[in-house]
Simulated assay, not measured.
Amino acid sequence: MTIRNWVKFFLRAMAIGGGITAIVGLIVRWNFFFGYIQAGEIWQFLGAFLWMIFLGFTMSVVAQMGFFAYLTVHQFGVNMFRTLTLWNWVQMLIIVVVLFDLVVFRFKLSQASTGQTFLYIFLLLTLVAVSAVTAYFKAQWTKKHALISALFFMIVITTLEWLPALMVQSGNRDEWVTILLFPLLAVNAYQLLILPKYNRQSDIDKAELDKRRIERKKVKLQKSAKAK
């Protein structure tokens, strides 16, 4: 990928992360934001809203780091297990283990907290549904064997990026767990589906650049021949 296309890719992912976090944060923490509006503290409201956007930018950077790290892990996995089929089976096993770990160890649900149980079931279904839809379109737009790898990335890598929020035991844990999931899903889906477009554009840009270099070289040679 060329630097220009990488910058576009990076900035658009940042914009998605910031926008999604701001919208979801405003909805989930509406009581907090409405308190500022009710008190007429507009600058405090704007400051808190901008902080949400900045948090989204941070989540976008985390998601992008996770994505490029996964590209390396995926290539390592294919080389290690020799065949893509075997690596896909390993990825499916890891997906099951991660989902089991989420439900049993990370969510820490109890019968006494019905509302919290419904919230985390909703978040789990959102994670799986968005991952499945993204993986489906990835397989349709590229190659069918990309389905399992895309599902692995969307579920396992997103969960790893989400883990710091899940490990918090105090404060408004449920709110932040909810808020941070959505920008991670959105940015990861964007990266997975759009990266091939930027790679193709980079190939076109490189070909055009090489063509211009050859033309400039021809012009220089013609000028040199005339001078002689």
Rank of each mutant, 00 (worst) to 15 (best):
T58R: 12
L46W: 02
A48M: 07
A69D: 04
Q75R: 13
A69N: 13
Q75Y: 13
Q64W: 06
G66N: 10
G56A: 06
T72W: 05
F45V: 08
M59S: 07
A63S: 15
F68V: 14
M59L: 09
V73H: 01
F54L: 15
T72K: 08
L71P: 08
L50G: 14
W51Q: 05
F68K: 12
V73L: 11
M65D: 02
H74F: 14
F45S: 09
F54G: 14
S60R: 04
T72D: 07
S60N: 09
M52W: 01
V73Q: 02
G66Y: 02
F45I: 04
L71R: 14
L46P: 04
V62I: 11
H74S: 14
H74Y: 13
F45M: 07
L50K: 13
Q44K: 09
M52K: 09
G66T: 12
Q44A: 08
F54A: 15
S60H: 01
V62G: 09
M65Q: 09
A48L: 03
T58C: 12
Q64T: 10
V61R: 00
M52C: 05
G56I: 01
Q75G: 13
F57I: 10
F54M: 15
Y70K: 02
F68R: 14
W51P: 00
W51M: 09
V61E: 00
Q75I: 12
H74C: 15
S60I: 02
V61H: 00
Q64S: 12
T58D: 08
G66K: 05
Q75A: 11
I53L: 11
A63P: 12
T72Y: 05
A69W: 05
A48R: 08
L46N: 01
Y70I: 02
Q75D: 14
M65C: 15
V61Y: 00
L71D: 08
F54Q: 14
G56K: 02
A48E: 05
W51L: 06
I53D: 02
M52E: 06
L55E: 01
Y70N: 12
G56S: 07
G66Q: 02
F67R: 02
